[in-house]
Amino acid sequence: MTTGVKAVGTWVLLAPRNALLGVLWAYRKVISPLYGQVCRYHPSCSLYAFRAIQYHGALRGTGLAAWRVLRCNPFSRGGIDDPPESHHTYFDITEHGFVRPRKED
């Protein structure tokens, strides 16, 4: 019972994250291919945003992603730039990149 309640709570907690991930997923499927690779970094800004939001949540992830987009301009050096590592414990990442409460087994 308590684990069920906890899982629901975690789902609610993860909902904004999944909503943003859905938007980014659609963007990467539909809009990104329009102009091919233009990003000066690896991972590209949208993949950076995706990972940042996966691991750091809607708020901090969006902040990180916004800062990255600002850094990515024709006069920046570019190169390899991964989002900061995080030590999450309470959620898993599905094969499509969404987050769900970690199964306790």
Binding site: Y35, Q37, V38, Y41, H42, P43, P74, S76, G78, G79
Partner: peptide
Amino acid sequence: REALSRETMALYSKAGTNPFSSCLPL
């Protein structure tokens, strides 16, 4: 494919060049 992209970018970075113009112009 991720490794390819990563190594390619590392090479650009080492050479101090980058063929992409970022999304800012767009």
